[in-house]
Nucleic acid binder design. Structure first.
Lengths: 340, 340
DNA sequence: TCAATTTTATGAAACGATTCATTATAAATT
DNA sequence: AATTTATAATGAATCGTTTCATAAAATTGA
């Protein structure tokens, strides 16, 4: 029997209407009454129910964020940055982690729509069974809840979408390796990630073509977004009769596997092999050696996501889906060697 | 004008009461009606409002989790593990990140109580101005929302509390160093963290005493939970006339600073200095060399937190606060050298 | 002082679900 | 066939807010 607005009203000897005005700092309430009501609120430790309130005003001041893997440092950064944006606008962030699992993602989507979040930022777990996700997206449309897709796009052209400059980033990485004399460059990419995996391979290919380096299919591999996948693929690359002098790892999760594989074989970076990775992580600068990486501008990503979303929430924009691309930059550290 | 239960009822030609029964799979509704209602639900993409529902049944099936820093890998693990526990019980996790800021923590606490979470797991940002937090905690009591305090206790003996075995863990670490021949051991600890900082120092002292090694105040430092603090303190330790042969770093955030400082001075681990750290992190096994650490059993921590919390939510327990301690274990890798 | 005007306070309706007492229908028993 | 019993469906009350039309009180102007 928690205390309600009625209790406050009774206790302070005013009507609930007046109490509500005090709560919301809406005008037209006598100073002494306002004061009295506020005192009672303090005294009884009253907290207005966001449920009742949200139901009446049809806004909950909450934003949902669904990410595919919380153990991935990239998404941790996304969480932090999005939270900041959301918080600055006086909204509360509700987080969902699908752990790369479609069922769990659908589950999050349902829960969030049930909770009537005012908007959703979604980094989807995949497109394999897009149907399920699309169904949920329809529900959001029916409820008039705007969605911004980030990082992993769903080929929904009607939704606001922000992706990373995967092709260009991979091109930068590969080009940098080539410019440092590398000709045989291993590429480890991902298959789960909606389009990012293939886009990164495309960028890699583009650089090779540009420098007229024949591409060797044995050097290009796709795998799951896991440490193991990185480990296994690296092993394959290293045991090639003519192994690569450099490896471009497409994701930070696979990178861990690559590092493990190299360490086990006592292969030194960059002396024995050069390494470059997509995604910056907190510790890539602490690794030994510090890693040269392609870093996406996560901050811009999150800021933009919030802008697009709140534009819609605030009714500033309601036309067709906007599509934005976030650039990446090459951060040169010490994991790439210049070779003959 | 999203579709409501009334719309479903009208459309299906039944009463809202019946519709509600269908929604909740409660008995006593004819097969054909149930089917008809379900069809309409599908067709109209109906999602029952958790707000209205929660308001009526006084349960929201949500659990709040507040952590002090999401960039800290330890807490990322906590998030993941707690989420799993919560999810398994058919609840939704709502995450708050106080970023070690008391105001933001208070803010999270308010928001969560407003939302009427069914329970709260709190790793508090500090005790400096405990008053503010205590006020909020009173509100939770008034609302009958159970709280479990983890990692950072607030000297609230009436709340369920789970802490890490800080003293014993630090003792293990120090003892291990001593057994490897180290006599001058630097200690970097934290001051912000409620009691953990001093407890870890106590464990360090205990080990020194046990081996009758005189403690040198110059070797023991407390600092903020930041990279910079680790960096600065390490610098101080290294420029001592008689620098330590080993350093015990109390937190993984400070560790990054220590690593940076060592790298800058080209001091090799473990050849030139031995290192051991409290907190395991995903990458400590990938560092060069892999780091010997004191690892808290985070899994047990989170499982237990969920158990204590749901015990109360389910009304299985309602007596005085329970206090549990989670053990730590020494994970030997390669950052400690045996010296003469 | 009184009417006109402005300011402030009130209470009922609404939001969208659940619940429960009641009524309607179907099944079972004699 | 009539009565009892079991099963289904209904609709009004309720949860805790906000809002708004209305009423009461205070203020103003003559």
């Amino acid at each position: 029997m928690p205390v309600t607005i009625k209790d406050i009203a009774n206790y302070a000897g005013v009507s609930v209407g007046t109490t509500s005005k005090v709560l919301n700092n809406r005008g037209n309430v006598r100073e002494d009454l306002r004061f009295r009501v506020q005192a009672v609120i303090e005294k009884l430790n009253y907290r207005p129910s966001a449920l009742a309130r949200g139901m009446k005003i049809k806004r909950t001041n909450t934003i949902g964020l669904i990410i595919p893997k919380i153990m991935n440092t990239f998404y941790v950064k996304v969480i932090e940055l999005v939270e900041k944006e959301v918080h600055d606008r006086n909204y509360t962030l509700i987080l969902g982690n699908s752990d790369e699992d479609l069922e769990r993602e659908v589950n999050c989507l349902r829960t969030f729509s049930d909770m009537r979040v005012d908007g959703l930022i979604l980094a989807s777990a995949g497109r394999t069974q897009e149907g399920r996700i699309q169904e949920e997206i329809s529900a959001y449309r029916a409820l008039d809840i705007p969605i911004v897709l980030i990082v992993r796009n769903l080929s929904n052209t009607d939704l606001d979408t922000i992706e990373l400059e995967n092709r260009e980033g991979a091109y930068q990485a590969t080009r940098y390796l080539i410019e440092n004399g590398h000709r045989r460059i291993g590429m480890i990419s991902s298959s789960i990630q909606t389009s990012a995996g293939t886009e990164r391979i495309e960028g890699y290919m583009k650089a090779l073509e540009e420098f007229q380096i024949p591409s060797d299919r044995e050097l290009v591999h796709m795998g799951g977004l896991t440490l193991d996948s990185g480990y296994i693929i690296t092993g394959k690359l290293l045991s090639l009769p003519n192994p690569p002098s450099a490896i471009f790892v497409g994701t930070n999760f696979q990178l861990l596997g690559t590092l493990r594989s190299l360490k086990e074989r006592d292969i030194k970076i960059p002396e024995d092999i050069s390494l470059i990775c997509f995604d910056d992580t907190e510790w890539s600068s602490f690794a030994d050696p510090p890693l040269t990486v392609i870093e996406p501008y996560s901050e811009d990503l999150c800021k933009l996501a919030a802008e697009l979303l709140f534009d819609r929430i605030d009714g500033m924009y309601s036309a067709e889906g906007r599509h934005r691309v976030i650039p990446t930059r090459l951060v040169v550290r010490k994991s790439v060697n210049r070779i003959a």
